[in-house]
């Protein structure tokens, strides 16, 4: 039976390596036929912020990879509304990440779901394995 795996992201990208290497785990995890979701809360919401350009800091922009997650069958990206609001952000500041629903004539659907802290807590409680980064 498939387990529920959550990738918990609470740190901003570039300042530390966690966001990038978390994404690398997620891409491998996609091959394992488990139920995968990503959670972005606290500073982690910046991982999927629009308009990232780390060129001048000398790093590679890995944010386009989040747009490819749908092709790997990873379609659940939960973002905490309170974490966005605390940082002066809203859903408009996030990349419009979508996936093609093969059960619905490949209609494009949003992968990002902005949810409340209470809903996030419930989703966390449903997981079998949580990898924290």
């Amino acid at each position: 039976m498939a387990k529920k795996f959550m990738y918990l992201n609470r740190k901003a990208p570039y300042g530390t390596v966690y966001a990038l290497e978390s994404l690398e785990v997620v891409l491998i995890a996609a091959a394992f036929e488990q139920e995968v979701s990503l959670a972005f809360l606290d500073d982690g919401v910046y991982q999927i912020a629009k308009g990232q350009n780390p060129k001048a800091v000398g790093m590679k922009n890995f944010s386009p990879t989040y747009n490819a997650l749908g092709d790997y069958g990873i379609t659940k990206l939960y973002v905490e509304r309170e974490s966005l609001a605390e940082r002066g952000l809203s859903e408009e500041d996030l990349m419009p990440i979508v996936y093609e629903d093969e059960d619905d004539d490949y209609a494009e659907k949003p992968s990002v779901q902005v949810i409340s802290r209470a809903e996030m807590a419930q989703i966390m409680a449903e997981q079998d394995v949580t990898f924290s980064f």
């Binding site: 387990k3 795996f5 690398e24 785990v25 491998i28 995890a29 091959a31 394992f32 394995v129």
Partner: peptide, 11 residues
């Protein structure tokens, strides 16, 4: 070894 070893561990 690869990251798959981590996922396998979780499973």
């Amino acid at each position: 070894s690869g990251l798959g070893q981590l996922i396998e561990g979780g499973i």
